[in-house]
Computed example of a mutant assay.
Amino acid sequence: MNKLSYVVVIVVLACLVSHSWAEISRVPLIPQANFTRTKSNVKAEKSILASKYLKETTTGPTGRYLVLHNYQNAAYYGVMSIGKPKKYFNIRFDTGSANLWVPSINCPSTNVACRQHAKYDSSASSSYVANGENITIDYGTESVVGYLSTDIVRTNNIPIRSQTFMEATSVPSSFINAPYAGIWGLAFQSIAVGNVTPPLDNMIAQGQLSEPLISFYLKRDGTDLKGGELIFGGIDSTLYTGSLTYVPVSVEGYWQFEVTSIDTNDVNLCSDCQAIADTGTPLIVVPQAAYADINDQIGAVDNGDGSAFVDCDQQSSLPDVNFSIGGTTFTLTPSDYIVEVTDDDDNVYCMSSFTYLAGYDFWILGDVFIGKFYTVFDKGNSQIGFAPAVTS
């Protein structure tokens, strides 16, 4: 894949824009940037098989967890099931949206993205309850079209009874060759299309979690067995250093909060600005004015399409980018915010992780940020917490 193709994939992905330790459940997360019917495909399929048959779980002071997989750093997904008997899907866990959807058996074979992935068949599930309301979910410039259905949903054997989700009958082309079949939204109900109750809210209401929160550990350079963790209902202090810094959610829609300031090279990029923490965005999306300022400060040259590149030989001399959140400074070093991409001729380029999307006036802190900082999404207290993630 050449440099431009990698950038297009990244930008499309960005558009899809004292705690109790008892009974915490961990979900396998698998980061991957692109997907073909080769070794990558085998990994995606094996993750489902492992969930079904291997039962690789461990119980300890922080609860149970599943073996994790890692391919690349652009998308994180895990295993879930719908129905009785269970139908398994690889699913992308996204704190930047609030609906759950998977491809439907009624999605036509002419839709390539549907044809490539597992599909839900309501006639095969004894726990299915019809709904039928037609909805459309917009992700940036693309849309997923389908209708609502209700069934039992599980991840890591946590049952969510009577969960309403969308059966997608039209899936956009950005999901062609993607390693995940659909999206599991983890944001607030106020942004859920059709006012559907999100799965996390139902988990909490049905008493499935020890605490009404989730936390993410996204490993950026893991091996095949160390991809990341999504912990439902708890926090694992072994996955971060120091203390968690919490800030209140400013608007309950996305996981939105206030950032006191962002600076680099002693240049202020924003003051009292709004940001959202979004596991469904691989990079860091900034307002357009800040995009020009920040890439100017790090010496990145715009490629004309919302991406910018630096001289790889100069990477170690680039400045840090500092985020002041809740009285704590969270720093991204050049090795955090510069992404190495390789073209078809094995030439290596160094891309800035700071990009922009027209019309957005807030910062979207995606996986580049969340991968550096363990992140807690606390619905019970309407707050979000950060701490430096462990790297070993």
Rank of each mutant, 00 (worst) to 15 (best):
T136G: 01
F165C: 07
Y147T: 03
V145C: 02
S162K: 12
S174V: 09
G140Y: 03
S125P: 06
Y147A: 04
L148P: 02
S174N: 03
N157I: 00
T155D: 07
T164W: 04
A124N: 11
S162Q: 13
Y128F: 15
I152F: 09
S127F: 05
A124K: 15
I135N: 04
V144H: 02
S125L: 05
I152E: 14
V171G: 01
E167I: 05
S149W: 11
A130T: 10
T141S: 10
D151P: 13
A168E: 01
V145T: 10
N131R: 09
I137N: 00
T169E: 09
V171I: 12
I176E: 14
Y147I: 08
G132W: 02
S127E: 08
Y139F: 15
S170G: 09
V171D: 00
Q163W: 07
E133W: 01
N134T: 15
E142S: 13
N156G: 12
N134Q: 13
A168Y: 00
R154Q: 15
S149K: 08
S125W: 03
M166P: 09
S127N: 11
Q163D: 08
Y147D: 02
P159V: 01
I152D: 12
Y128H: 12
A168R: 01
S125H: 05
S125F: 08
Y147K: 02
D138K: 12
Y139C: 09
P159A: 01
Y128V: 03
I176W: 02
I176V: 15
G146D: 08
R154C: 09
V171S: 03
S127T: 15
T164Q: 10
Y139Q: 09
N156F: 13
A124I: 06
D138V: 12
Y128E: 00
I135R: 06
A168F: 02
T155I: 04
I160F: 05
S170A: 13
S125G: 09
Y139I: 06
S143F: 05
I152R: 13
Q163V: 06
V153D: 02
T164V: 10
T164N: 08
S125D: 04
I158M: 14
V171F: 01
P159I: 00
D138N: 14
P172V: 03
S125K: 05
G140W: 01
V145M: 05
Y147R: 03
N131W: 04
S162A: 15
F175I: 04
S174A: 07
T164E: 10
E142N: 10
L148R: 05
V144M: 00
R154L: 13
M166W: 00
P172M: 04
T155F: 15
S143Y: 07
T169P: 11
P159N: 07
E133V: 11
S170T: 11
A168H: 00
V153H: 04
V153Y: 02
M166I: 08
G132I: 06
I135S: 02
S126R: 11
Y147S: 12
M166G: 12
T150Y: 12
N157V: 05
E167R: 06
F165R: 06
D138W: 02
P159M: 03
G132L: 04
I158D: 12
S143D: 03
V145Q: 08
V129M: 11
T136N: 06
A130K: 14
V129T: 14
S173Y: 10
I135Q: 04
I152S: 15
Y128K: 05
V144D: 02
E167V: 04
Q163M: 09
E133R: 12
I176D: 13
V153T: 05
T169C: 09
